[in-house]
Design a protein around this nucleic acid. Structure first.
Lengths: 214, 214
DNA sequence: CGTACTTTTGAATCGCATCAAATCTGGTGG
DNA sequence: CCACCAGATTTGATGCGATTCAAAAGTACG
């Protein structure tokens, strides 16, 4: 909510704030740099050699690719924690990494990061389960995009991404529509329809699945 | 191509045959069991406690989930190497694992597998890059499913999964259609159209993107 | 206070899903 | 070896739902 750049950095606070960061070994932590970022700022581009890993501290950062028409496709959104995890094992970035709003990231040298993974068992384990979580999330996303109708995708999203069938959107509905593989008009109409037929309860940014009477 | 069950197992051969298997530590290798599998055989079900990791040696094994209509959604296909990697970090399977054809898998006790990962650095590194590859693959799949038209998905598949724009299908076109999020009829018609307009060259199971004269 | 973007609704169009049905294929058992 | 069967492949007709184009109203931000 506060897009301004922190004047001084409370490291322990920042680092304790996120699960994976909590297990970062001291050596890697000391080698990290805080980087304020502005909306639309590009952190790295597809094809560039991998030199850094990023962890989002504030704001939102996205992994983007573009189709041949130049239309953006969002591959990942992060509002906290690491992103572009797969690039650690690659030589070149396979996506653009772009800030969606003002905020800040921690920047780690890829080389030091890799060394830390092999030296610190706890960090290694945390990273591995982080990757596994990412795999599960992506599988859920693929499953959702395989569904035919707009309504089915919305419900699937609430069931798999929400807690107890409810989510508080952290993005515009337009952006949500893109994530669901729908036009924004289709999403608006679907939400309206699901609200009217009693499937959903919508209160501002909070969208919840109503328990079926059956 | 040979779905019959090997009478005796040439371990070194099998294990050297696959990249990730090559770095399996001796202890884990010795604890592995070869398991012949028949088409449609279920290796594990969603919700069951995770007790084994599987590596496909012959045939094809799939990760499935079902929507509420009971229609299958294929989350992963493997014709060699590990699958359901994310389950290693989980307590319960989050998908069904089912053989698509006759073949065989190696079965590893999950507990021993986890211990080996923490004890053997080379194996750990191989597993990590395996996970990273999976993440990239899934992102490509999501990107593909976000594309509007059938033709665009086919072309994207050839560009991202094929070598130099060409693939040799290892599955039926019907199954491919499901993977692309299309009905099989739509895929047949799209292939036909792309072949006629010169975008594709199709020769049995080999499907290749023709170089544009532009 | 203006500008850019999101949200919302309407109307027309198009592509894909769906249903139907014929042909082809590989594998099974008699 | 052939008849048979299940599933894959292929083509046609139809309808629906999502996209697209258009435009108005609402909202955030400098």
């Amino acid at each position: 909510m506060n897009p301004s750049i922190p004047p001084a950095i409370d490291w322990p606070l920042l680092i304790r704030a996120q699960a994976t960061l909590a297990s970062i070994p001291p050596r890697l932590r000391d080698a990290a740099e805080f980087m304020p970022i502005a909306a639309r700022q590009t952190l790295c581009r597809i094809g560039e050699p991998v030199q850094h890993m990023f962890s989002v501290i504030a704001g939102e950062v996205r992994l983007l690719r573009r189709d041949r028409d130049g239309a953006e496709i969002v591959l990942q959104r992060s509002r906290g924690g690491f992103l572009a995890e797969a690039s650690l094992a690659a030589r070149f970035y396979h996506c653009d990494v772009v800030a969606a709003e003002n905020g800040g990231v921690l920047r780690f040298a890829a080389e030091v990061f890799r060394e830390s993974l092999s030296e610190d068992a706890a960090f290694n384990a945390a990273w591995m389960s982080h990757l596994a979580r990412e795999v599960r999330k992506l599988r859920a996303q693929c499953e959702r995009l395989s569904l035919r109708g707009a309504a089915e995708r919305v419900v699937h999203y609430l069931e798999s991404e929400g807690s107890d069938g409810a989510v508080v959107l952290t993005q515009s509905r337009k952006a949500w529509a893109a994530e669901l593989g729908l036009s924004h008009e289709a999403l608006y109409r679907t939400l309206r329809r699901l609200q009217l037929d009693g499937t959903l309860s919508i209160d501002g940014e909070r969208i919840a699945l109503r328990r079926r009477p059956g």
